[in-house]
Write a protein that binds this DNA or RNA. Structure first.
Lengths: 210, 210
DNA sequence: TCTTGATAATGAAAACATTCACAAATTTGA
DNA sequence: TCAAATTTGTGAATGTTTTCATTATCAAGA
């Protein structure tokens, strides 16, 4: 596939572009300019062109980008042509919210297995997703060849569960706990730290006042 | 207060440092070195020293940083000495999860008002937080002098509600919807885009394979 | 077929962020 | 008391990302 060196900052914006392209396509739009895209996704238009340019020229000067073209292209880059199954560990409040989050619609991602220790939840189906006991983790993840897990357990279980996930063969973890879990270097951990985000927002706001 | 120019990247790490300092303090630790901190928050130790240095010399050579000192300092910088009230709009799945999220414990942040359109939820108390009708938004936010709101509504209401929030005097929005809402430049919007995060993780994972 | 306005591509510069590496200060232990 | 060990603070180097500014190309209308 694309073995060109893509800057990390660019890679993080790709899904954003993709989502808006899907929207444009649904609207029946045929072409789009970097300026227009810029307004919608709130990224500088020059950055957008630069980002796109890493993949080779996709647009036409004086015309813009062809929506369908771009969409097809991004679909491949982002593996959107195949459904990605992910696991969810912890179906408490946050986990439950994530089960209801529609990843599939625009992103072709599906939570295909959930795990919990609470017997009140386990061995049931929540939102169409089977909830297994934690002890089934290794087996299910192996069976379903899942590589990505969402970690939504209380923080005192975070490291322990992470170890189990790694042992089960998980290669990417989206970590919703406030703990920075440690994992082998070939396992990618993406932290989603809500309290920190809020705190940062408050900090910037305070700065803005001066 | 601190009118020094702090790099954005540094600012984003401050809450992280703060949280670990609280933990250390609870543990009764008196001093901490940049190396030790580095392991816990997973930030390069040189970066930590650099970050701290923007605030002036806070540590002692050959000794490390005094936990209580540092904690007091960060508490002020991050406004942790006063309770910050925030509003939550939308008490559906995600909103509900956020109501249960304990921001107060380590961050001195409290959701003090929630809003929704669903009469099933409004005029009740959820998790100790009063849920008002959207029409009460301006009044309540004004009364309680709330400056920050968490936006957790379906995406087709996102822009509309954002406008109302801005009108009510909100200055910072943590946006959980996948839509990039637009707001005046004096209103800060922080996007928490779960599908994008997951998608990015998948992308990087795919890259790692080659 | 010209001309004009729109718009992508891109080299170069600037801004921003991280990392290295070491002197200076301090602690520790003998 | 002194030498060894520790650890900060920071100049300089390096790396990354954004922004600027120019050029090349295209569509469409006269």
């Amino acid at each position: 596939m694309t073995d060109i060196k893509i800057p990390k900052a660019t890679a993080k914006r790709l899904p954003l572009y993709y989502r808006y392209l899907v929207f444009l396509h649904d609207e029946g739009k045929e072409k789009v300019s970097s300026t227009e895209l810029s307004e919608a996704v709130q990224v500088d238009s020059a950055s957008i062109r630069r980002d796109f340019s890493y993949f080779g020229a996709l647009g036409k000067r004086g015309y813009g980008y062809d929506v369908v073209n771009l969409l097809e292209f991004f679909k491949k880059i982002l593996n959107q042509d195949t459904l990605t199954n992910v696991a969810l560990v912890g179906v408490g409040n946050m986990g439950h919210a994530l089960l209801n989050y529609n990843f599939k619609r625009t992103n072709n991602i599906r939570i295909s297995a959930a795990f919990d220790i609470n017997p009140e939840y386990t061995d049931t189906i929540m939102n169409g997703v089977p909830v297994y006991q934690n002890s089934d983790m290794k087996y299910q993840i192996g069976q379903q060849q899942i590589e990505i897990a969402i970690l939504a357990v209380p923080k005192d279980q975070a490291q322990e569960i992470t170890n189990q996930l790694v042992d089960a063969g998980i290669k990417g973890i989206m970590n919703f706990t406030p703990l920075r879990v440690s994992a082998p270097s070939d396992v990618r951990v993406q932290n989603v730290d809500l309290a920190t985000e809020l705190q940062t927002l408050i900090y910037f706001l305070e700065q803005d006042k001066h």
